[in-house]
């Protein structure tokens, strides 16, 4: 038998070291371009706008003269005292719309996951397809559907279901639009979570608990929770900042915080106020998101 040469183990040591070193730097090389892009065009602007939010007018009382860097925490106080109703409305509308979307998407996702059989892929396509038709066009279509003279409004009016005798230009229209526009963000994660559930577990639940409702509450829903969490977050986050639905489907009274930021930035041109509002919105959204993730006990999204 050939001699065993323990010292041979070190023969290629130096080669190996260079290979190892280059391998250690690989992840950073992979990350660099993408994270660089995000750093320059996401992080830097955020800090720039943090600075802007603390600026003060050059000439007191005349914003047209421009602004200079300051440390005006007062901007935030002004933003809250002036616009807290819009903040509240944004979270309220977004929250209700998210719940509505959950109620609509859940049976749909459940049906596709467990009852669609060979139609499963077709149904998934049907769920996503409407959203290839432009966001704005869809929302304008809702404007037509919910208009005062439309069959939908007249039908509901005939049943005396509408407090204001109309839908368009009411919070109801805004919420309907938001729930609609972010529906695929709710349906797809729900489907993904439900599809992973072994259907025999649900059958076993039916066997052990009897009532379909109890089975749903004790077995199906808890197992689909990751999908519920992901879906509600993916719907709620864009919904809070959205202003298109409020602009097109709501009245002046239904303005959300997105509308305020947009107009402060592009029409009033009060940049410090717009930036302060942006930061408050972002902080509030992130706080809610992190509390929610913590409560739901999942960190899949982060």
């Amino acid at each position: 038998m050939p001699a065993v040469v323990p010292s041979a183990a070190t023969a290629h040591g130096s080669d190996e070291a260079t290979v190892r070193r280059s391998r250690r730097s690989t992840p950073y090389l992979l990350l660099a371009p993408g994270l660089g892009w995000l750093a320059v065009f996401f992080v830097v602007p955020l800090f720039a706008s943090l600075a802007t939010s603390l600026q003060v007018p050059l000439v007191e009382g005349d914003p047209d003269q421009g602004y200079t860097q300051g440390f005006a925490v007062q901007n935030y106080v002004n933003a809250i005292t002036e616009y807290w109703p819009q903040f509240l409305k944004s979270f309220l509308y977004a929250g209700i719309a998210t719940l509505l979307a959950l109620c609509i998407a859940y049976p749909l996702a459940y049906f596709i996951a467990f009852h669609a059989g060979k139609w499963r892929n077709i149904m998934l396509i049907l769920v996503v397809a409407p959203f290839f038709c432009s966001f704005l066009i869809r929302t304008y279509a809702w404007k037509t559907i919910l208009a005062d003279q439309s069959p939908v409004t007249q039908f509901l009016n005939a049943l005396h279901l509408l407090p204001d005798d109309r839908i368009l230009n009411t919070p109801l229209a805004v919420i309907t639009g938001i729930a609609y526009n972010f529906l695929p963000f709710m349906t797809l994660p729900l489907y993904a979570a439900l599809e992973r559930i072994d259907f025999r577990l649900i059958e076993a639940g039916g066997d052990l608990y009897g009532s379909a409702w109890t089975t749903f509450r004790k077995v199906t829903f808890p197992l689909s929770l990751p999908g519920v969490v992901a879906g509600t977050l993916l719907t709620f986050i864009p919904a809070v900042g959205d202003f298109i639905n409020a602009q097109l489907l709501g009245s002046v009274k239904d303005k959300m915080i997105g509308n305020v930021i947009d107009s402060q930035f592009r029409i009033v041109r009060d940049y410090p106020m717009a930036s302060a509002l942006s930061f408050l919105l972002m902080a509030a959204t992130l706080t809610i998101v992190f509390l929610y993730i913590r409560r739901a006990g999942t960190d899949d999204l982060v």
């Binding site: 706008s49 986050i237 809070v240 900042g241 202003f243 930036s275 919105l281 972002m282 959204t285």
Partner: peptide
């Protein structure tokens, strides 16, 4: 991050 914030900053 809300889209308005992304766009504005």
């Amino acid at each position: 991050t809300p889209e308005v914030v992304l766009g504005a900053s």
